[in-house]
Amino acid sequence: MTESLIVLYGALPYLLRGSLVTIAVVAGAMMLGLVFGIHLAVGQVYGGRWLRRVIGLYVWFFRGVPLLVLLFLFYFGLCSLLQINLSAFTVSVIVLGLISSAYQSQIFRGAIMSLPQGQLKAARALGMSDRKAIALIILPQALRLSIPGWSNEYSIVLKDSAVAYALGVMEMMARAHFVASRTYEHLPLYFAAGFLFMILTYLGTKGLRILEEKVRIPGYSA
């Protein structure tokens, strides 16, 4: 028991440095997913028939294929096929980001469609182009409404980021396993990693709740 604690204590700084890698992967993926997701959502709501169809296919693909398979496909397959040299870290960010963009697009799409039709009409009536109306009127409202869904998506991406271990990314899970297989203290290390993930989930969702409160529109309830 004490032995386990000593190992754990010694490994903690190493794990915590891994949490920085985890945070970097998740932050990168969430940002990529945000930028792509917004465009996908806008395209799916306001785009023409063909655009909507193509986006539908994209969403269907990235929501239907397992993360691990996509990681292998991109890292071992496409990267060498296209002769581009990307690190395991970069590929993990991209793959997690693309998958998340598919899910995020559905969060944003739902939020956009929940807004009253009149918002767009009023913007158009003032002489705004659709592009301006979407950027200035629709998205500021839709993104606010999306924060709870986005927070949920964050906790999923965070946990999924542990799969990046399969490509050798030295995030928390990988480090926990690395130390475990050297010290034979598997259980304490896995639990430590699990709790660190829970802490990151808590901190992230808490931060997003604060953000939600901060940008809340007085009196507004949708």
Binding site: Q119, K121, A122, A123, R124, L126, Q141
Partner: peptide, 23 residues
Amino acid sequence: GKELYAYRQKVGMIFQDFNLFDH
């Protein structure tokens, strides 16, 4: 495009349900 936006600026509209920008 631009012609339409310019025209709409000259034609103000008031809606039954106001349609103020909620944010």
